[in-house]
Amino acid sequence: MRRITRIATVGIASAALALSATACGGKKSSDSPSSDGSASSSAAGAAIAYDIGGRGDQSFNDAAFAGLEKAEKDLKIKTAEAEPTEGESEADKVQRLTELARKGNNPVIGVGFAYAPAIKKVAAKFPKTTFGIIDDTSVTDKNIANLVFNEEQGSYLAGVAAAKASKSGTVGFIGGVEVPLIKKFEAGFTQGVKDTNPNAKVLTKYLSQPPDFGGFAKPDLGKAAAKGQIDGGADVIYAAAGLAGSGAIEAAATSGKWAIGVDSDQYNQAGLSKYKDKILTSVTKDVSDAVYNLIKSVKDGKPESGEVRYGLDKDGVGLADSNPEYKNNADLIAAVDKAKADIIAKKITVKTTP
Rank of each mutant, 00 (worst) to 15 (best):
V108M: 01
C24W: 05
L280G: 02
I52H: 14
S89L: 05
K285T: 13
D289L: 10
G271N: 14
A124Y: 01
T22R: 01
L221R: 08
F173A: 13
K70M: 12
L68S: 12
F65Q: 02
R55Y: 10
Q266V: 05
V171Q: 07
A226T: 02
G242C: 14
K285C: 10
G215V: 08
G45L: 01
K78M: 01
A46K: 00
E186I: 06
S273D: 03
D315I: 00
V262W: 07
A345C: 10
K299F: 07
S32M: 03
P180K: 05
S20F: 13
V177E: 02
Y115C: 08
L100W: 03
D331N: 09
P219A: 08
L243Y: 15
A234W: 12
K120T: 11
V122A: 01
F126D: 04
L19G: 02
T349Q: 10
D315F: 13
K327A: 15
N199L: 03
A43M: 00
L181I: 07
G242A: 09
F213G: 04
M1S: 05
G37S: 05
V350Y: 03
M1K: 06
G214K: 13
Y326I: 12
G301F: 11
I279W: 14
F213Q: 03
V336W: 01
G306K: 11
V108C: 06
I12H: 04
T129V: 15
I279C: 09
A270E: 13
S208D: 01
N61S: 04
